[in-house]
């Protein structure tokens, strides 16, 4: 310890002439890279071990989110209701989008609530990494915990709004619930699987493309219009715009429209639905979930960089 200059550091490092390189030394003592991406099954297992954190984080965010507004958690229901009211006036009454649709209020409300669920999950997912950089740079956990927590937060909110939706549907159609309503949790499960996958994929995109948050509202608006939330796709596209049937089919096959149509099929009596809608629902759920996890995991070690 006689030369107190940077030479000391160099002497310890590169200058360890004749000695094994540091990577070999690390290997000999069984040291591992500090930032290695675990294999995919191990990653999922780590994520499962963090389930308490994910649940607590989601609940905590829900509690703290509305703690400053007077109406509190009521906004979770008020927001889609107000949206539905605006669309009812705009498209149902003024522009005559109602057309021949039976039970138009129930039709609109179902579309609005189901679409809002996916929209909120995807939008929240896109911010889950980029908005939590300080957390990512401070603690160690599988990063997928964040988009997952955001998706679960939306699921918790959905529980309330689904209850309201069912009441409103019964009131507006005047038809009592049938045994078929037992399928509602199945649709929601499929939709949740899709939402989780989509928000995982969006989380990765949002972490590297900062403009995503500016772009998302427009993408969401377009998606809303393409999913037949306030008009019947079949009626509008094929019957009044005289476009070929396959255009309508593509629109029906998009994930949001699939879940909306499936839900309408359950809730609204005599609502015509393409028979293959449920196939599309299952496909999107499985595909999005698998792809989302895989795509997110691929960049696991890079999320801290910003």
């Amino acid at each position: 310890m006689s030369q107190p200059e940077s030479a000391v550091a160099d002497a310890q490092a590169g200058g360890r002439s004749g000695q094994e390189p540091l990577s070999k030394l690390a290997k000999r003592y069984g040291l591992r890279r500090a930032i290695a991406r675990p294999r995919f099954p191990a990653y999922l297992r780590q994520l499962w071990e963090r389930r308490h954190f994910i649940m607590t984080y989601a609940t905590s965010r829900n509690v703290s989110k509305y703690s400053s507004s007077a109406l509190g958690q009521l906004w979770q229901v008020l927001t889609p209701l107000l949206n539905a009211a605006i669309y009812y006036v705009m498209f149902g009454l003024i522009l005559g989008g109602q057309g021949n649709i039976e039970h138009y209020p129930a039709f609109l409300l179902t579309g609005m609530f189901v679409f809002t669920y996916t929209q909120r999950s995807v939008t929240a997912g896109a911010k889950s990494i980029s908005g939590n950089l300080s957390l990512i740079r401070a603690l160690h956990f599988p990063r997928a915990a964040l988009p997952l927590a955001y998706a679960i937060q939306e699921l918790q909110q959905l529980a309330i709004s689904m209850g309201i939706l069912m009441v409103l549907v019964v009131v507006s159609t005047g038809a009592l619930p049938t045994w078929f309503w037992l399928m509602i949790p199945v649709v929601l499960l499929l939709q949740t699987m899709f939402n989780v996958g989509a928000s995982l994929a969006m989380a990765r995109m949002g972490s590297s493309m900062r403009d995503m948050n500016q772009l998302l509202p427009f993408i969401m608006r377009t998606w809303l219009y393409a999913s037949g939330v306030f008009f019947s796709i079949q009626e509008k596209v094929v019957e009044s715009l005289h476009m070929p049937q396959w255009v309508a089919n593509i629109m029906y096959a998009n994930p949001a429209a699939s879940y909306i149509e499936f839900m309408r099929d359950i809730l609204i009596p005599e609502h015509p639905v393409p028979t293959w809608a449920w196939v599309s629902c299952v496909f999107w759920a499985v595909f999005a979930l698998a792809f989302g996890f895989w795509y997110f995991w691929r960049a696991e070690e890079r999320y801290g960089r910003g």
Binding site: R32, R33, A34, I35, H140, G304
Partner: peptide, 15 residues
């Protein structure tokens, strides 16, 4: 060292 920031080059090994 905590494995929270990815190295640009070089590496960190830990136990």
């Amino acid at each position: 060292i905590a494995g929270l920031l990815p190295p640009h080059s070089g590496s960190v090994y830990t136990d």
